[in-house]
């Protein structure tokens, strides 16, 4: 019991003392962040607080300047998002990184195509039925429904496209899922779908880093809320004991939060 409890307290992904500059602008200052198994960590902050920058540094989109990233307790260095994916860290990017002219299966398997066996495979021939089968199986296991798996994404609504992007991340993530504003472009029902999915992923033991502007959404799914302001982590909130007003105050640095925290 003690051992498994200790394991449970080891972060899957940990950032220590991350700094990042864009020219003269200090985007991140000594940022520490730990992601533990089976939790949803919400990362909130005003525009320009450094949320996306932090994610990009963690997943290898941007190079690490100073600080350490630990993955399962081991220091790692991701020089591309591909390397992060290889480790089981999947990201849903804010700018919806899908190829809209491909269908959902092709998007889900992009860069990881299954090829046919034998010579045909060596020649690069794709095994489309297998990819479709694996997609259906995986999504069924996660209880995710993506309509029209063989339809090109341009023919789908924005919410359905986001569903594909989320489904792709969830399908491949074995360690961590990072979602950068996954609900920004969505309607009410679609947002509910995504939040549901976030909880399901967490329930399988895979932690989710959830970045959002939408405080009600954050309070619906987060187990822990980390607040970034001007490139620094200012506080951590427990959604069970704090309110949305507290979070907003922390993000903007208004007195109400400070007062309350002091009291």
């Amino acid at each position: 019991m003690a051992l498994s409890a200790a394991l449970a307290r080891q972060p899957v992904l940990e950032a220590r003392g991350i700094n990042k500059h864009f020219g003269p602008v200090q985007a991140l200052t000594e940022v520490n962040l730990s992601v533990f198994p089976g939790e949803v960590v919400a990362l909130i902050g005003d525009n320009g607080a450094g949320k996306s920058t932090l994610i990009n540094v963690l997943t290898g989109v941007l190079p690490l300047e100073s600080g350490t990233i630990l993955f399962n307790g081991e220091p790692v260095h991701f020089s591309s998002p591909h390397e992060a994916r290889e480790c089981g860290i999947e990201t849903v990017y804010q700018d919806l990184a899908v190829a809209p002219h491909l269908d959902a299966v092709a998007n889900i398997f992009l860069g990881r195509e299954r090829r046919q066996p034998g010579i045909a495979g060596a020649l690069g021939f794709l095994n489309n039925p297998l990819m479709r089968k694996e997609t259906e199986e995986q999504l069924a296991k996660l209880r995710v429904r993506v309509p029209g798996l063989e339809r090109r994404l341009v023919t789908l609504s924005g919410g359905q496209r986001q569903g594909v992007a989320v489904a792709r991340a969830v399908m491949w993530a074995s360690k961590v899922v990072i979602m950068d504003e996954p609900t920004a472009a969505l309607g009410v029902a679609q947002t509910a779908m995504v939040l549901d999915l976030v909880r399901q992923v967490r329930d399988t033991g895979i932690p989710v880093v959830f970045i959002s502007h939408n405080m009600p959404n954050v309070y619906q799914v987060a187990d822990r809320i980390v607040v970034l302001r001007l490139g620094e982590i200012v506080t951590e909130l427990d959604p069970k004991t704090t309110s949305i007003e507290d979070a907003v105050a922390a993000m903007t640095g208004s007195t109400r939060f400070v007062t309350k925290e002091v009291v």
Partner: peptide
């Protein structure tokens, strides 16, 4: 062929996907 379409559709997404 798949990569040809993917790059034309969204080069940045293809790059992130490891293409």
């Amino acid at each position: 062929g798949r990569y040809t379409y993917a790059i034309g559709s969204n080069a940045a997404a293809s790059r992130r996907a490891g293409v």
